[in-house]
Amino acid sequence: MDIVIRQAKEQDFPPIFSMIQDFAAFENCSEKLTSSLEQMINEKEYINCFIAETDSKEIVGYVVYFFAYYTWAGKSLYMDDLYVKEGFRGKGIGSRLIGEVVDFAKKGNCHKLRWQVSNWNKSAIDFYTSLGAEIDNVEQNCDLIF
């Protein structure tokens, strides 16, 4: 099976949003998912996303990212979601998706890439550590929902 990593297009939003719902369920946080497919379409200019697509055009993974400025590091990239469908995990797709983000960050002269990982998700922590990521337990999320 060949996998192509490419920039997402608006017509890719329905399967991406379906995976976002799957990701929220995987994280046991479905109730926190307040966006919708319609909202994605209306806010498409803010969505930066690479997808993993099979040779049969099935989208089996995605990664969402955006530029950020961290006062301690400068221009950076934030990776919001990295998700691969269950039946496609362990095949290197996640590595290829994050590799695409890393390449994009380097080409964009970013000084770091930041993301979060749930403290219970040992396989993700092991994966990120194998990539050389430093995982600290210092900060926690603070969300102010409007």
Score class of each variant (00 low, 15 high):
residue 88 F to S: 10
residue 140 Q to Y: 09
residue 35 S to M: 03
residue 132 G to E: 01
residue 20 I to Y: 04
residue 133 A to R: 00
residue 132 G to R: 09
residue 73 A to K: 15
residue 124 A to T: 03
residue 101 V to F: 01
residue 13 F to Y: 11
residue 48 N to H: 15
residue 46 Y to W: 06
residue 30 S to L: 14
residue 50 F to A: 04
residue 88 F to A: 00
residue 146 F to P: 03
residue 117 V to C: 11
residue 130 S to T: 02
residue 142 C to M: 14
residue 129 T to H: 00
residue 65 Y to P: 00
residue 73 A to H: 13
residue 96 R to I: 06
residue 81 D to N: 13
residue 141 N to T: 05
residue 39 Q to W: 08
residue 55 D to H: 15
residue 127 F to N: 04
residue 17 F to G: 04
residue 113 L to C: 12
residue 129 T to I: 02
residue 25 A to C: 03
residue 112 K to F: 12
residue 122 K to T: 15
residue 129 T to L: 08
residue 138 V to F: 12
residue 83 Y to T: 03
residue 105 A to M: 12
residue 73 A to P: 06
residue 133 A to S: 07
residue 131 L to G: 04
residue 123 S to D: 13
residue 109 N to R: 12
residue 105 A to G: 04
residue 1 M to H: 07
residue 84 V to H: 01
residue 112 K to T: 07
residue 71 T to P: 11
residue 75 K to S: 09
residue 42 N to T: 10
residue 82 L to Q: 01
residue 92 G to R: 01
residue 65 Y to I: 03
residue 104 F to R: 12
residue 90 G to H: 05
residue 47 I to A: 05
residue 91 K to E: 11
residue 116 Q to W: 15
residue 121 N to K: 10
residue 129 T to A: 09
residue 138 V to G: 00
residue 21 Q to D: 14
residue 3 I to N: 11
residue 27 E to C: 13
residue 105 A to H: 02
residue 86 E to T: 10
residue 146 F to D: 00
residue 1 M to F: 15
residue 115 W to D: 01
residue 136 D to V: 03
residue 81 D to L: 05
residue 64 V to S: 11
residue 102 V to T: 13
residue 132 G to H: 07
residue 21 Q to R: 10
residue 30 S to E: 12
residue 42 N to I: 10
residue 36 S to N: 10
residue 44 K to G: 07
residue 33 L to Y: 09
residue 64 V to A: 13
residue 6 R to W: 13
residue 1 M to Q: 14
residue 102 V to L: 14
residue 80 D to S: 13
residue 120 W to D: 02
residue 20 I to M: 11
residue 90 G to E: 04
residue 100 E to C: 10
residue 108 G to M: 02
residue 5 I to K: 01
